[in-house]
Design a protein around this nucleic acid. Structure first.
Lengths: 238, 238
DNA sequence: TTAAAAATATGACTTTTATCATTCACTAAT
DNA sequence: ATTAGTGAATGATAAAAGTCATATTTTTAA
């Protein structure tokens, strides 16, 4: 993991618009800015591993990372994908327990490491910031609950359709409509909560029906309407 | 929902040992105590419904409640079961959004309604309390992630075994070993993330193998070891 | 107490999804 | 350029889980 002292100031970082740091005051932000260390992480490198102890958090300036957990059987399950503006590693500084999740870069990334105390102090003193963090966690929890529901109430086909739209909305598409965030079939499957073969079959089916285009690893949504119909469509339990 | 002014003081409530209120100071706790209203909720009654706006939280003194969400198809999915000592409805006072979950009593309950401001004020001023709440949410999030993993990596049979042990550990068993918290087959199925028939079959199988006893709706764990073997046992993806 | 209603249980069958094997396509390295 | 290696795609098959129908038991209430 490449390290450098960035001359950039957090106060002017666009990324801040999206995360809880926006609730910090000038002084607090200045301190963060002075203490932070910007790192370059190449695709495939890990930002942190399960079991490690973090003494800070990482704020993502660019790129995306998968947050995954190793199951007993050895397959790793992607819990979520974090992108620009998101702060990862929050939880281990709140609980002071070793981290229970692994972060691996999905493309080249630029992340800022912010030491623990620069977060914990404002957390104690600045109740605006605090409330922001509480809101963030609450939102994460709600999202997790939605996934739980989907996993047992929707088919893999439906979940895949949802994920494709989600990837488009959250990470964008290029000029030709291909999803900017490129995942391997295995990663996509994990995100959907299935195995790669089932995922591939499902993709093939969508392609055959003209809902998506596939060129190598790249996927483009051709008919978002069609995907939405799949999502709304019937499953058994109706 | 029956309402009464309780003469009990929160300061002495045993339930407090388990939840974040323990981090409140004497004065804050006194205020909570004066403002709270104790309610009796009968089995089957709802404490709050999806879409409602809460202006407070509920602290569970006794009994248990299921927290569930209605899916588009109309089946309701139990997200979790909250019991003695747990505070429910936290999230809607943090986000100020209408609640997205429904709480229904699984048995006769005694809950204390605590108005919003008696929580929000300490949240701003008392950073110990605040940290406790953050920790609580973090723990909930971790739990949710574990469920997500289980839903796509374990079989229903394995998940059922886990839930049975979980119900025993969290809600206890009577003298004869029967689980104190009695759920309908449908509720149990929802908790496991399956349909009632599959759940029943799975239970029948465990019974046949002598791992559990079933008398009407009551279930007793006969061999926890056996259940643990199921949990550890193979699924396909190995 | 008895009839009706609700919940549980089980059989028969279907759909969904995983597994294993194999082929295909592309990449990279010798 | 050839070959080894990796990821993607697909077929064949098996296992898991859902659905529908029906029987049985338990609960509820007249």
């Amino acid at each position: 993991m490449d390290t450098e002292n960035s001359s950039e100031h957090c106060e002017h970082c666009i990324v801040r618009q999206i995360n809880a740091l926006q609730a910090m005051n000038k002084r607090e932000l200045k301190e963060v800015s002075n203490a932070k260390v910007t790192k370059l992480v190449k695709k495939g490198e890990t930002i942190f591993k399960e079991g490690e102890r973090l003494n800070g958090v990482f704020c993502i300036r660019s790129g995306a990372t998968k947050l995954s957990k190793l199951s007993e059987s050895g397959t790793d399950q992607i819990i979520k994908i974090a992108g620009k503006g998101e702060v990862i590693g929050k939880r281990s500084i709140i609980t002071e327990e070793p981290i229970h999740i692994e972060a691996t870069a999905l493309n080249d990334m630029e992340v800022c490491f912010i030491p623990k105390n620069k977060i914990l102090e404002p957390l104690k003193k600045n109740d605006k910031f605090n409330l922001k963090v509480l809101k963030r966690l609450t939102a994460d929890l709600k999202e997790a609950e939605t996934i739980i529901m989907d996993r047992s109430q929707k088919s893999t086909h439906q979940r895949l359709a949802e994920i494709l739209i989600y990837l488009k909305e959250k990470h964008g598409e290029d000029q030709e409509g291909y999803l900017k965030l490129v995942l391997s079939r295995e990663e996509l499957a994990s995100l959907v909560g299935t195995v790669k073969e089932t995922c591939i079959r499902s993709l093939s089916d969508m392609k055959k029906r003209g809902l998506i285009k596939i060129v190598k690893k790249d996927i483009a949504i051709v008919s978002q309407e069609g995907l939405k119909q799949i999502i709304e469509g019937k499953r058994y339990r109706n």
